[in-house]
């Protein structure tokens, strides 16, 4: 049996009185790619942000229920440790504009004040950039600012920054919605490479992307987790009518 890395039970999240994630129960298996899809405003991003406790940073945001990472309650841990174990990549590439490419990759160590010998740092930078297929493109310009890169390269730089911290899970919040088609396919190829070492949760409103890249797919609608199954089953033989309607494009 495959091991479960993240488990949610009766998980709820709200902004003030606006209840946006309702009673979500989900088991995420290790080293899998999970796509989370659903129409705009269905709570998929909010749920994702609850996993690494970014949700609570918004004033008025609350959540309750069980969220366990390796049987440890995420909401009992200090958020800083949660975020070190569960990395996040955002919708828009957000490299640190004041740092070089090199420092951006190592930012998680450098800005956290973790001192590493230079050799080790160089190793981490090269390994992380290689993992995101960016090393060849930027190895001669590591001292340039990260914001000089193109959008797709910046997004891969942000993935490298997350990978460098060696998290257990990486959350992607619509990671390709700000990218062109070619960069999108580069990033999607990356997902398959990363799967070997990490568990990926990808929020997307692009159904084709969910079908292309994921092992399992979760469908959110109006804050509820409607259906969660193998991607193949979700797209060929969904059990719930609403999933059926969504994937056939009857509503979006």
């Amino acid at each position: 049996m495959e091991s479960t890395i993240l488990k949610s039970r009766n998980f709820n999240a709200s902004f003030g009185t606006n209840h946006v994630v309702k009673n979500v129960n989900i088991d995420i298996p290790r080293n899998h790619i999970i796509a989370v899809m659903g129409p705009s405003g269905c709570g998929k991003t909010t749920y994702l942000r609850c996993i690494n406790r970014m949700h609570e940073l918004i004033p008025g945001a609350t959540s309750n229920g069980e969220m366990k990472l390796n049987d440890e309650d995420v909401y009992q841990m200090h958020p800083i440790f949660v975020r070190l174990k569960i990395g996040m990549v955002f919708q828009r590439p957000n490299p640190f504009p004041n740092l070089s490419i090199y420092d951006n990759v190592i930012a998680g160590y450098k800005l956290n004040g973790i001192k590493l010998p230079k050799g080790e740092r160089d190793g981490i930078v090269e390994r992380s950039l290689t993992k995101v297929a960016l090393w060849k493109e930027v190895k001669d310009s590591l001292n340039k600012k990260g914001s000089f890169l193109s959008g797709g390269q910046q997004q891969r730089l942000c993935i490298a920054r997350t990978v460098a911290m060696e998290p257990e899970m990486i959350l992607f919040d619509e990671p390709t919605s700000a990218l062109d088609p070619i960069s999108t396919s580069t990033v999607e190829e990356l997902f398959h490479e990363l799967k070997a070492n990490y568990t990926l949760v990808i929020v997307t409103h692009n159904m084709q992307q969910a079908a292309r890249v994921s092992d399992k797919t979760a469908f959110f609608y109006m804050g509820e987790l409607v259906e969660y199954d193998e991607t193949k089953i979700m797209f060929t033989n969904p059990k719930d009518n609403r999933t059926q309607n969504y994937i056939t494009g009857r509503f979006s």
Partner: peptide, 27 residues
């Protein structure tokens, strides 16, 4: 400054004071 900058730093597990002194104020 965009919120994404603060989120980028927080998502790397940085404590608040480091986010301020190492990211927000330098930028």
């Amino acid at each position: 400054l965009p919120d994404s900058l603060r989120e980028a730093a927080l998502a790397l597990g940085m404590p608040f004071h480091r986010v301020m002194f190492k990211v927000i104020i330098p930028v």
